[in-house]
Amino acid sequence: MAQTVNPADALSIDTAVVERIVVGFIREEVRKVGFERVVLGMSGGIDSALSAALSARALGPENVTPVIMPYRTSSPESERDARAVCAHFGLTPDLVDISPQVDAYFTNRFPDADRARRGNKMARERMAVLYDMSMAHRALVVGTSNKTELLLGYGTVYGDMAHALNPLGDLYKTQVWALARHLGIPTHVVEKAPSADLWEGQSDEAELGFAYAVVDVLLYHMVDERCTRRELRGMGFQDAFIDDITRRVRDSQYKRRPPLIAKLSARTIDREFRYPRDWGR
């Protein structure tokens, strides 16, 4: 383990190096499969702003279509911020209001559904819109999930977790903030409290029960450095917190894997049948 005076220092990144690698990633992996364009959901939050900014840098703003997909309870500030980010990076957004399809489903059939079900449904409606846009624009869907939420399982499987490419999936939220500042994303978008905006007043950190700045340090040392519990305690983390995070990571493992296949043949897909995704590209 790399010893540092302050464990949080481990999360600092050379933003120029990271930008270069991620921009190259988008450019190469999009063009390699014969595409020039991408679409992505634009919430007004920092993750989608960063994904959009990186995509614009990789492919040119004319090849990036951000789609703003509010539900009727979404905060108007979110749409305003999404538009501000688009304007800042020269992007022209599409707007698709997902209220009709979401309401049609719940109002008639499941009026008592709780907000978790409604939130998941919204995330999956947005996915369905993006994949339709992907066909319409001949564009790949770019994801906006960061490493923190992927590890915690704080996302909707086949909803916001569905995309062709994810430029942010190996960056903790803390690192997303650093890269967003480096790319000049408007300050109020960088600094506002993170929210999935699935219902009014929702806040990531209130819902999760801890601050990203804290959990990122724990996750980095658990996942990237594979520190022992004794070492984690030495950094000041309580056993209960370590247990909670360990459980979240373990219990959401299924979300990060393709569906299980019942093994029968001698060469099962993804077990013995192993080809690169860039096969023939």
């Binding site: 790399a2 540092t4 220092d9 481990a10 999360l11 600092s12 990144i13 050379d14 190096v17 990271v18 690698i21 980095y220 990237d224």
Partner: peptide, 11 residues
């Protein structure tokens, strides 16, 4: 393969 971006350092 390039990897290892922690601690604010180059690859």
């Amino acid at each position: 393969p390039g990897r290892g971006v922690a601690h604010g350092e180059a690859l």
